[in-house]
Design a protein around this nucleic acid. Sequence first.
RNA 1: GCUGCUAUGGCUCAGUUGGCAGAGCACGUCCUUGGUAAGGACGAGGUCACGCGUUCGAAUCGCGUUAGCAGCUCCA
Length: 633
Amino acid sequence: MVNITLKGGVVRTYEEGTTAADIAKSLGAGLYKAVCVAKIDGKLRDLRTPITGNCAVEILTFDDAEGKRAFWHTSSHILAEAVLHLFPDVRFAIGPAIDNGFYYDFDVPAPFTPEDLECIEAEFIRLVKAGSGLERFELDAPAALELMQDEPYKRELIQEHAGKGEKISFYRLGDFVDLCAGPHLMNIAGVKAVKLTSCTGAYWRGSEKNKMLSRIYGITFPKKAELDEYLVRIEEAKRRDHRKLGKELSLFAIMDEGPGFPFFLPNGMIVKNQLIDYWREVHQKHGYVEISTPMILNQQLWHRSGHWDHYKNNMYTTVIDEEDYAVKPMNCPGGMLVYKLAPHSYRDLPLRIGELGLVHRHELSGALHGLFRVRCFTQDDAHIFMTREQIKDEIIGVTSLFDEVYSQFGLRYHIELSTMPEDHMGELEDWETATNALRAAMDTLGKPYEINEGDGAFYGPKLDFHLEDSLGRTWQCGTIQLDFQMPERFELEYTGADGQKHRPVMIHRVAFGSIERFIGILIEHYAGAFPLWLAPVQVSVLPISERQHDYAREIGARLREAGLRVDLDLRNEKVGYKIRETQLQKVPYMLVVGDKEVESCTVSVRSRSEGDQGVVRVSDFIQAVAAEACERR
RNA sequence: GCUGCUAUGGCUCAGUUGGCAGAGCACGUCCUUGGUAAGGACGAGGUCACGCGUUCGAAUCGCGUUAGCAGCUCCA
């Protein structure tokens, strides 16, 4: 007999050789149906793994992240088997689970078409209905290579493992055998709903030097209803696409004449300027000053900053009077020059210098994506110059500023700590000190973070803030980068209390990240229905007939005087028509005025979110809305 | 940049096997002066992304270029 510790610390006794599947069954049939894999003493295992000694067993279902991954990973094997049946000449690469489903990469003579995908999906469903089980077996490296003799990609993977002397595991599903570490579901019958979402090209091992393979993406669920819900969410995301809404609401435009260089239209400019006003207010409160540095600076500067050696591929260059110049891809070198303009005392530090800097970066044409990925954007940058002793407090201060900004928009976030990249400047020791400082600040604040190995900037490690929007999608926006290198390169100094020269340390940080990207996120987050303080038009006045035009004009003027953004719809249309259009433009308030309202000096108020609000005195409405607009909620 | 797909009035999209370029919305004029999500009539608006080719004839077929979309890679 063995003692098994279950979730919650409950200990039960089972016969030796019992499997996780048996345990799951003994815990209840309902649980058994949704069960995916088991965690035995912290290690993920197949459910049928026999248990031979005392251990802790956790049964994972589709509701657990790891259970879900196993479910999707198994689905990728089913996909591969379906493809094998329809395209016998296929060569298999890899097929992992991802955050939202799974994919499998295939080497086929011609890419898959949407029609192929339908056939594959039908075969997938047929296989699931047949409901076969998976079988695990292990081979040593030579036997594994022998088995996979016609599979060049699998052989490459096996050869990487061969040196370690470990056994290599395989899974057999029907007539499809795949090299795989597992774990997997025992039986595929639980995969009740499938959608093959897309087929695209993808490089073998993610490198553009390698062959382009054909990738099929899919997602599966244990219940049909869950798939339907997922598809609804996808539709919702499409409905909120900022590129679509940007056009419909006349916020911005990107034209053939400047791929990746967005134009901001009057409505978009209002949102942008409101964000900038807010940004200045918050930063003023947190003790920042603001500068503006030139967009074009000479090549010498970029050599000194290290950008020429580490960032040249992304920089636009030009020649002025036979001298080489570059358009700035970052604001920091300009900030350095400003710091150097005058001597500094330790009494001046920390010195927080903000800059809304327009930077240009050459991004690959295929990477461009609406406002999310552009070639010129405004960073809400700031450089903080400080002593080593001030590092931790400053990072804490910046984090609290970020908290304030993100909560303003109802955006939650998670943090990633990116460490030293391969291509970097400076000494290992400095990198360690800097990385530890970032850790220490987060630990003090009790903020959890993930590690993103080797993803730091070339001059220092960074904390990245990934914002979560109303649909649960995440976007990298804010970043705090700790830099020991630039102050060294630019020989920055301050005079300490001891009268000696010392080298300051600096933080580079952005809260919005880029104003352009942040606006894109806000458009999708709010589905175009901006809160009152950001809305391009805050109030629309809709007269019912020409008789009320003078009255409407008067109300319009009074609203504008109160600082509100107003649209007067004096067109020769019925009020129902005007309401429809105002609603589609997501204007927060509309005021309907007819003869009744003229007589009583009132307006009929209809709000975007709450519908008909009844008749209100003009002065009361103006007072209430003007107050609401100042509140920024 | 790479792979695949796409490109037709301001917008959304039809356009069959190659044979005179269409609709709805938006826009303009007129009628209508109305009460909470589309009133009516008329009108203007397009070298079918661009270039080269095949053909008696190209929006349609081929090649190239540009841009967009999806993905890879990269990133604020």
